[in-house]
Write a protein that binds this DNA or RNA. Structure first.
Lengths: 221, 221
DNA sequence: CTTCATTTATGACTATAGTCAGTTTATATC
DNA sequence: GATATAAACTGACTATAGTCATAAATGAAG
């Protein structure tokens, strides 16, 4: 989406010099600023009032843009969610992986990662539900790249853990780590969904998730 | 719409006797008929024009009721999907289980069941996506009972398969069949989602699903 | 600075899901 | 059959996501 069309055809040398210091065009800068304002306005309103209770008009007003403009930056209201929360989710996942201690049992490490990812959604479950719905069922054909990137990062992280475990002989090397990662993630996802629906406490969720993960991991030992 | 004006006014005794044979009130009968008309109208329009392209007004008109009435029978447009397709999906699943041959390998049986369930959605992938979205993320607090019933039936069917396998010594009895069933289903669900997104052919989907299921099943052998 | 082309912004407008105050219909009771 | 109560129905109405024709801003080039 964000092209940087740098230094096309410049006439003045001074111009080029100025671009060294400030290499984005005014246009690009405006766009980024507007985008940032939209993201901030949307985040604040979604967290303050909830997704359904926030109107696109309110977001546009808070970001100080026209209603139509909003839809140049996001294809739909749901799409805004990805725009707003993708980086945050990605970072949560990456941080969770980074914090793992390699000497912990594999199952513990997995539970820790998923637990961290789930905890990130603890504060606002309704928002989380809609966000996850959008990730699994993207409304139009939109922001597929962002979603794929997020999922890829998670799968890669999990697969790395599994590869390490296989190398250490803790896990049978019979299966492709990536496929196993996908299995584990789908366990997490379903359990989290039920947790978000309010069926369980956080502890019950963690227990249940551990049991589900154990079925896969234990079998591959 | 054609009314059948049977048993309009009866004397007390005759009335009671008639009610023995036909124990539903006129009210209840009207409701059922209306409900049936709504279901049929919605099914036809959804399949003909697609979910997004069908308006609630069209459905109401086709069912010969007022717009407001529609929402006495379904809480939302999405809710209609469950109303319309739940029985069908339940039957597809049950039939798939019934057709299994106990002497086939467990993994084959699982693939067959899931394949049958997925095939049911093959004709109309877009509709399937929205339907599955509604099942996993019911819009309001909507039709939760129906959804739970459907999921329970599937889990029970899978768990029965696994219990049989455990009894036959094919599968280690270490884990709760229900939990294993949930694992397998979540594999199916995620793979089907990607298939519906158009990433794979049906064959690729089946292969991939088999691989995912094998990770769990193999480990428990 | 002026012109022209391209990108970006705008808000009046449209389409439609869902609501609600008022109406009709069914049933129970006399 | 008349009346009262409750259940079911209705369509005009509201709220709002998303569109689109038009306008403004930006940048390139002379």
């Amino acid at each position: 989406m964000s092209h940087d069309s740098r230094a096309r055809t410049k006439t003045a040398v001074a111009r080029v010099a100025a671009d060294r210091l400030q290499p984005v065009s005014r246009r690009e800068r405006n766009k980024q600023e507007k985008r940032a304002r939209i993201v901030e306005a949307a985040r604040q309103l979604f967290q303050e009032k909830g997704f359904a209770q926030t109107t696109t008009l309110e977001i546009a007003e808070a970001a100080d843009i026209g209603t139509g403009t909003l839809f140049l930056y996001a294809r739909s209201k749901e799409d805004l969610l990805i725009l707003v929360f993708k980086d945050e989710m990605l970072e949560t996942a990456m941080t969770a992986f980074a914090r793992l201690r390699a000497e912990d049992p594999l199952l513990d490490q997995l539970v820790q990662v998923f637990d961290a990812m789930a905890s990130h959604h603890e504060r606002d479950r309704d928002l989380a539900k809609i966000l996850l719905r959008e990730i699994m069922f993207p409304a139009n054909g939109d922001r597929l790249t962002d979603i794929a990137e997020l999922m890829d990062a998670i799968f890669a992280g999990l697969a790395a853990l599994l590869t390490t475990a296989q190398a250490a002989g803790i896990l049978r090397a019979k299966f492709d780590p990536r496929l196993v990662a996908e299995n584990l993630f789908s366990n997490y996802f379903m359990d989290m969904l039920e947790w978000l629906r309010g069926l369980w406490t956080k502890e019950a969720f963690r227990d249940r998730l551990r049991q589900h993960l154990a079925i896969t991991i234990d079998g591959l030992r």
